[in-house]
Design a protein around this nucleic acid. Structure first.
Lengths: 193, 193
DNA sequence: CATTGCACATAACAGTGTTATAGTTAATCA
DNA sequence: TGATTAACTATAACACTGTTATGTGCAATG
């Protein structure tokens, strides 16, 4: 990546972490990066291009959180560790997470390249969650189980972000999510044994 | 509600259903409603006020979907019926659902009144999900179980909306969600019997 | 009749993403 | 070396956004 390109991306990432999408105007990025506004369009495909990079950046963080396939503690604990990592990434990079799930910019929709990265992440999730299934399980079934786990974890993260109800303390959320997932994974194991 | 007020709200609701938040500009609403742009500010508190009304409108639809407490089929089937209603509302009023969960307008955050309506909906959810729990269960525990169910269902809806992966057909989603919820509710019942 | 208040249209302000125009600087090539 | 080309820059404009100030007319009230 060229110098100017990485400088722009760094500035955008900083602004993004500081104030989310609302702080991410083309003029603000170019000002902080020390380039002209037109630079955003020559080095990236406008704001869409910037958001794509941040989208991919976000998924790569999720990637690394789930990259714990080779655990000695057995499939159940490996998955729960992956869930824990996911929850932590979602907390630490909340802005990225919101962008990925469309919670921050109505106009944005990921490019083909960005979509490809997200599918790669889903495939990794399938690998991890397949650990609790018999080896001869069909791919469709594996996808369904992976989706099941993902939906559950993401549901907790999403509800937490939007804080519809303030009845539950922020610290408790991740514990509740882990307990619920633990119960559900046991149910899946029992069902498909 | 005055004539002009309901006319404006009707226009806003129509535009919203047609094209989501991006179609909801103050000028577009006033044009369709046949009033001046300033009318949005005299009858409502600007765009925020309009979005608040739609937010509440959305929650009332969720309300009515879950308002099936008195079912003769027993607690398990009653809950699953509530989940089914929830999924259907989420499909039918996708724009409202996205607004409620912040997936459509970054700048918007619900007013106190709107928040109150959402808490009322959560309390109803607690009532429904408490059906599978012993009567002497603590309120905190009831909340946790309600959150568990909500997170799971919402996770499916949210992932479906954003279609990270196109590997699963749209028609299949709700069936998968219902099956997963069915499994999990059994697990909850077994755990807290 | 005069005054008050309400709804109106028009226009403006500050911001957004994007693009056209024009000027400057650096590197490449004959 | 001198000329051309490419890449950068700044400035300004366009069409849009939410919001507000200004002025206009009309209706009801004192």
């Amino acid at each position: 990546m060229s110098d100017a390109k990485s400088t722009i991306l760094k500035a955008a990432s900083e602004l993004f972490l500081e104030g989310g999408t609302s702080a991410l105007s083309v003029r603000a990025i170019s000002k902080r990066a020390g380039v002209s506004t037109i630079g955003i369009y020559s080095h990236f495909k406008g704001k869409q291009g910037i958001l794509d990079e941040l989208y991919i950046e976000g998924f790569e963080k999720v990637f690394s959180a789930m990259d714990i396939l080779k655990s000695a503690k057995g499939p159940r604990e490996t998955i729960l560790q992956g869930v824990k990592g996911y929850l932590e990434v979602a907390d630490k990079y909340e802005a990225h997470y919101r962008l990925i799930f469309g919670e921050s910019d109505a106009g944005y929709s990921p490019s083909e390249e960005a979509r490809a990265v997200s599918e790669k992440a889903f495939k990794m999730l399938i690998d991890v969650s397949s650990l609790i299934l018999p080896e001869d399980t069909s791919l469709a079934k594996k996808q369904h189980i992976a989706l099941e786990i993902w939906a559950f974890v993401h549901g907790y993260v999403s509800l937490k972000h939007h804080a519809i109800s303030t009845l539950i303390s922020p610290e408790e959320w991740n514990t509740l999510a882990l307990n619920a997932l633990s119960t559900h994974i046991d149910a899946i194991i029992a069902k498909h044994a």
